[in-house]
Design a protein around this nucleic acid. Structure first.
Lengths: 155, 155
DNA sequence: TCTGAAATTGATGGCTT
DNA sequence: AAGCCATCAATTTCAGA
């Protein structure tokens, strides 16, 4: 699907405020409500907008820390990897998992109540997964950019 | 703010579908629309719900790849760090930036049109930032968990 | 705090330009 | 492809339980 300036404008606004009312969205981008809504539906149907989500404060629901874990596997064959992926899928605390092409085999983003909670998770669960040979944890001290939202250029 | 089961239920649902109508949200969690809306407002006011966002398909807006860059700085003093942070803040392609406590000094998530686009970004912009001594890029081959959403236990 | 009704406001679709 | 307008549905407020 090819996007024009108005579409990009809609995307930028909806990324910033996913619950904006159509009537106000239309005002912001300078269109009347009907064509605005039509465009939004088209963007949804085309999969450009994949969904909407409330952004929840992790600390408020008991997750005080977010950590990154780099994982090395014993082997890189498909059996080892798919077993690992399956185990990771079942771990709620792992909110993100990328299989990597470089030095390490996987990069995880993990949420935990605190560092102790994380250490327990790593020692009792992550490190015991079949095929995991090594885990290195990177601890953020301060988050400068939050990662919600991608840049959508004006042109 | 302390959350009860209904609040958690609301959060879980709104995280999955941030644009769900209040009337349907109320049905799902087994409440009538008025108290449901009141709870949502309270959660918003308390900062438990930080906002709402449309989830946009990066590829559709021209970002084919997401990469992680680990950055080492020449020094860890506040001047070097704050200059680095300022430079990073101005780079739209950097969607996430954490200052780290361990081996490396910063972990970035960067979006780019393709690998060439990223290499240009790294060579022409990131590596030239004052205080940056070393950059190592980790390339995801496959993303197994997407990282939108945190677990909210039923209890 | 919830329920239920009433009033305001927005969403939605057909038709015209 | 956008604007206008009529209809329908949801949001929001406020009484009472």
């Amino acid at each position: 699907m090819k996007l024009d300036d108005i579409d990009r404008s809609i995307l930028r606004t909806l990324q910033r405020d996913g619950r904006i009312q159509n009537i106000e969205l239309a005002r912001e981008i300078g269109l009347s409500p009907s064509p605005c809504l039509r465009r939004v539906k088209l963007l949804e149907d085309a999969g450009v907008i994949k969904g909407y989500s409330a952004v929840i404060d992790a600390a408020s629901v008991g997750y005080g820390v977010t950590l990154f874990a780099r994982v090395w596997l014993t082997h890189q064959d498909s059996t080892t990897i798919s077993r690992f992926v399956e185990a990771i899928a079942a771990m709620d605390q792992v909110v993100e998992c990328h299989l990597m092409a470089g030095e390490c085999d996987a990069l995880l983003r993990v949420v935990a109540a605190d560092l102790n909670d994380y250490y327990r998770f790593q020692a009792d669960h992550l490190s015991r997964v079949d095929g995991v040979s090594n885990v290195k944890t990177d601890v953020p001290m301060q988050t400068v950019k939050t990662g919600r939202g991608i840049p959508i250029s004006r042109r």
